[in-house]
Design a protein around this nucleic acid. Structure first.
Lengths: 261, 261
DNA sequence: GCCGTTCTTTGATTCAGGGCAAAGAACGCT
DNA sequence: AGCGTTCTTTGCCCTGAATCAAAGAACGGC
C-alpha cells in the first residue's frame, strides 16, 4: 500500500506576516513547529503596559503589528525610551526574572507571545535557536551603542535628523531599481511627540521647534503631525552629522531589534 | 601495572587572576583547555588602539589587567565612550567582520586574546560556551540601556554621582560582615577627566567643576585627581537621583561587561 | 634637582535647550 | 455637528552646561 502524499496543515504561523523577517525564519522547520506550539497571539491597545519595570517578566515574544516602546522610568517620573520595536522585532528578557525595563504599547499592537520558561526550555534544547537569539542580541547591542553616541554627543537637531533617517531606513523596503533621485521620500513617524522626546532625550517643545525649523528651511515637509516628506535628503544627512545614515548606505541598525524588556 | 596518578600540568590559565570571574570559569574543564590552546597573552600601553572603528576585527579576548575604553568617533572628532572594560570583561565582536566601535587601552593593559575565527569555531562547536557568551551579552545590553537612561535623562551632577557609585560597586569586593557604617568608602577612578567626560557625555571642565563642588559640599573627599573618599554615601545616592545605586543594593550592572568592539 | 608636557582646575562669557504658559489642531465621543 | 480631551505648536524667559582663556598641579625625562 502506497503512502499518501503528505498533507500540509497550515498553522497560524504560516499566515504570519512578519515570519520571514523574524527569528522564526532563521531556524529549521521542525523547530518552527515547536515554536508554533507554544505561541499565542495577543493584542493590546495603545498605552497598555505589556511588561512592567519591576514585575516578573512571565512572557516574551515577537511584534506582529504596531509599535512597542521599551523604557526606563526614574523615581521622579523622568523617563527614557531605550528602544522602539517594530514588527518582526523580539521583546522580553530571557534568562532573567526581571529586566528593569518596561515594555508598553506605543500604538495598538498584535504580539506573538511565548511563556518565558517554555521558550527558555526550547532555547536550552536548541542551540540553533539560541544562536539566532544571540546574533539578534548582538545586533541590538550595536544599536544601543549607536544610540548612546546620539544621546551623549549629538545636538537635538542632529538627533531629530538622525531619527528621521534611521526610521526611514528601517521602514522602507529598498527598491534598488527605482532611481533614488526620482523616488518620493517620505517618513511615517508612528509615535507621538512625547515618545519622540523620551526617545531622543529632550522635550516635546524642542522636538516641535526643531521639526518646524527643518520644514521652514525646506529640508522636510510636514504632511501631518506624523507624516513627513524628505525634500532634501543630502541636507538632512548633513544635519544629522552622520554620513553613514545616508540612504543607500548599509549599516548594522537595519536588522530587526531585540528588546530585552 | 598500575596507572600513575594523573599529573596536572599548569597552563597559563591556571595562574590567571581573572579566570574565576570571566567566561572561562563558566564552562567545563575540557572546554577551558580548548580555550587555553587558542589564547595568547598580549600587552598594550595606555593610548594604544586595540581595534579600530572601521578595520576588520581579527581578534577578541578578555581583559586581564588595566582598563579598555570602547568608543565611537564622529566625523568631526566628537567621541563617545560606550563602554569601559575592567579586568575579566570580554572585548571584541563575534560573528561580524567589523563592529563600528574602537577599543583602546585607557591604561596599560594585559589582554588574553583569541583569533576571532578560531574563537567562533569554538563557539559553533560548543553550545555551552555560546550560552555563556549569550548571557554576558544580555547583561551588557542591560548595562547599555542603563547608560542610555543616564545620558538621555540625567543632569551632569547626577551622571557624575551615578558614575562614582557604579564604579564603586564594580570595583569593591562586597564584604557583608564589615558594618557599612564603619567601612571606609573610597573610589579609584582609573581614567582621565577627558575619558570621564567622553563617557558621561560632557566636557572636562564641567566634570571638574562638579567634582570640586561635591567635595566643597562634603559629599566626597579628593585624595588625588583619581582617588576619592565617599564621605556621605546617602547624599551621594540622592545626588545620583537613583536609589537603586545605593551600596548594598544588588543590580544587573554588577556582572562583568562585554564589549562588542 | 629642573623643565617641558600633559592634565586639571578656575574664571568669564555665551548660548542651546528646558520650563512655563497659552493658543491652536486634531481626535474621539455622543 | 458640537464638545471635551489630548496632542502640537509658539512665545517668552531663564538656567545648565559649553566654550574660551588662562592659571595651577602633576608627571616623566634627563
Amino acid at each position: 500500500m502506497k503512502a499518501l502524499p503528505p498533507v500540509r496543515i497550515l498553522s497560524a504561523c504560516d499566515r504570519c506576516e512578519v515570519r520571514r523577517k523574524s527569528i522564526c525564519n532563521a531556524v529549521k522547520p521542525v523547530l518552527q513547529k515547536e515554536i508554533s506550539r507554544i505561541s499565542r497571539v495577543r493584542t493590546f491597545e495603545a498605552g497598555n503596559t505589556i511588561l512592567a519595570e519591576a514585575e516578573d517578566s512571565v512572557f516574551l515574544g515577537i511584534v506582529m503589528s504596531g509599535i512597542l516602546r521599551v523604557q526606563r522610568t526614574m523615581a521622579d517620573g523622568r523617563q527614557q525610551i531605550v528602544g522602539l520595536l517594530l514588527p518582526a522585532d523580539f521583546f522580553g528578557r530571557v534568562f532573567e526574572r526581571t529586566s528593569g525595563v518596561a515594555v508598553e504599547a506605543a500604538t495598538d499592537v498584535t504580539l506573538c507571545c511565548f511563556e518565558r520558561h517554555a521558550f527558555e526550555r526550547l532555547l536550552s534544547r536548541s542551540p540553533e535557536l539560541e544562536h539566532q537569539m544571540f546574533l539578534a542580541v548582538l545586533r541590538e547591542l550595536d544599536a544601543a551603542r549607536d544610540w548612546m553616541l546620539l544621546l551623549g554627543s549629538q545636538t537635538i537637531p542632529e538627533r531629530v535628523a538622525s531619527f528621521f533617517l534611521i526610521l526611514h531606513r528601517r521602514t522602507t523596503v529598498i527598491e534598488p531599481d527605482m532611481p533614488s533621485r526620482k523616488r518620493r521620500l517620505s517618513v511615517h513617524v508612528p509615535i507621538s511627540r512625547h515618545d519622540m522626546a523620551a526617545y531622543l532625550g529632550t522635550t516635546v517643545e524642542t522636538i516641535s521647534r526643531v521639526i518646524q525649523d527643518m520644514s521652514r528651511r525646506g529640508i522636510i515637509e510636514i504632511h501631518s503631525p506624523q507624516h513627513f516628506g524628505i525634500l532634501d535628503e543630502k541636507r538632512l544627512v548633513r544635519c544629522s552629522g552622520r554620513e553613514e545614515l545616508s540612504i543607500g548606505h548599509r549599516c548594522l541598525a537595519d536588522e530587526p531589534h531585540m528588546a530585552v524588556g
